[in-house]
Simulated scan of single mutants.
Amino acid sequence: MQQSQPNNPLHGIKLATIVEELQEHYGWDGLAERIDINCFKNDPSVKSTLKFLRRTPWARSKVEALYLATFCRDNPWVKH
């Protein structure tokens, strides 16, 4: 059974989708400018980024916030 999470704007969106869409939108250099983490700067790939973000909650939070700010502007849970 799938639980409803009305207060979670990222519910149902996979981390891989978030990373792939941000990379397509900003590119690795653009991501590195916005979020200062090495997985965007040194030999970046979706696979290495996912591995890092799954182990590093503070970095994942920053990536998720950037995703929301970039693609979910009309979402009431996103503060502008």
Score class of each variant (00 low, 15 high):
residue 67 Y to E: 09
residue 7 N to R: 08
residue 6 P to H: 12
residue 55 R to E: 12
residue 40 F to N: 01
residue 53 L to D: 07
residue 20 E to W: 00
residue 19 V to N: 02
residue 67 Y to K: 04
residue 18 I to D: 00
residue 20 E to Y: 05
residue 45 S to V: 05
residue 60 R to V: 05
residue 46 V to K: 14
residue 14 K to E: 15
residue 34 R to Y: 03
residue 69 A to W: 06
residue 2 Q to A: 13
residue 28 W to F: 00
residue 43 D to W: 11
residue 64 E to L: 06
residue 8 N to S: 14
residue 13 I to H: 02
residue 20 E to H: 08
residue 58 W to E: 03
residue 33 E to G: 05
residue 59 A to C: 05
residue 74 D to A: 09
residue 28 W to A: 01
residue 19 V to A: 08
residue 59 A to I: 00
residue 67 Y to T: 09
residue 75 N to K: 10
residue 38 N to T: 13
residue 6 P to I: 10
residue 54 R to Q: 13
residue 48 S to W: 02
residue 59 A to S: 07
residue 44 P to G: 09
residue 60 R to M: 11
residue 80 H to E: 10
residue 57 P to K: 10
residue 29 D to A: 13
residue 68 L to Y: 01
residue 48 S to D: 10
residue 35 I to M: 03
residue 26 Y to H: 14
residue 31 L to G: 08
residue 65 A to C: 08
residue 22 L to G: 05
residue 38 N to E: 14
residue 68 L to R: 15
residue 38 N to G: 08
residue 2 Q to R: 15
residue 67 Y to I: 12
residue 67 Y to V: 15
residue 64 E to R: 12
residue 31 L to E: 12
residue 27 G to L: 11
residue 17 T to S: 05
residue 56 T to M: 01
residue 69 A to F: 10
residue 38 N to F: 11
residue 66 L to S: 06
residue 15 L to Y: 10
residue 39 C to G: 00
residue 11 H to N: 14
residue 74 D to Q: 13
residue 46 V to S: 10
residue 4 S to M: 14
residue 15 L to F: 08
residue 72 C to L: 13
residue 76 P to Q: 15
residue 72 C to V: 12
residue 53 L to W: 07
residue 16 A to S: 15
residue 14 K to G: 12
residue 21 E to M: 08
residue 34 R to V: 01
residue 30 G to P: 05
residue 59 A to Y: 01
residue 70 T to K: 02
residue 77 W to T: 03
residue 35 I to F: 00
residue 58 W to R: 02
residue 61 S to H: 09
residue 46 V to N: 03
residue 39 C to I: 03
residue 35 I to T: 00
residue 14 K to R: 14
residue 18 I to M: 10
residue 70 T to A: 10
residue 53 L to S: 00
residue 74 D to T: 11
residue 7 N to F: 09
residue 51 K to Q: 02
residue 10 L to W: 01
residue 21 E to Y: 01
residue 5 Q to I: 09
residue 77 W to L: 15
residue 45 S to I: 06
residue 63 V to T: 14
residue 24 E to V: 05
residue 71 F to I: 13
residue 61 S to V: 11
residue 29 D to C: 08
residue 2 Q to E: 04
residue 69 A to S: 11
residue 3 Q to K: 04
residue 51 K to Y: 01
residue 31 L to P: 03
residue 17 T to C: 03
residue 36 D to I: 00
residue 12 G to T: 03
residue 61 S to E: 12
residue 75 N to E: 14
